[in-house]
């Protein structure tokens, strides 16, 4: 979550935003060319896939997961 900044806004500044969006985070934009490198066309699935940084679920439990709490 590095480089995310919390924006403090007064209620009237939020205009028509739904009220459940009371906390808004913003960050720098990414370089679109670099971002595109995370996407790859898969001929097997006939679709674009996004690079995955984590498994869908823990595959095995050989490590001490307390080290990864902030991840």
């Amino acid at each position: 979550m590095e480089k995310l900044t919390l924006e403090e806004k007064k209620l009237d500044e939020l205009g028509m935003l739904p009220i459940n969006h009371s906390r808004i985070y913003s960050n720098l934009v990414t370089d679109i060319n670099e971002e595109n490198k995370l996407i790859r066309y898969s001929s097997k699935y006939n679709t674009d896939l996004l690079r995955s940084g984590k498994p869908r679920k823990i595959i095995s439990k050989t490590i001490n997961y307390s080290l990864f709490d902030e991840e």
Binding site: E2, K3, N27, L28, T30, D31, G53
Partner: peptide, 10 residues
């Protein structure tokens, strides 16, 4: 990526 938001590859 310089001034852009850094992309984590892994």
């Amino acid at each position: 990526t310089g001034d852009y938001f850094q992309i984590s590859l892994g």
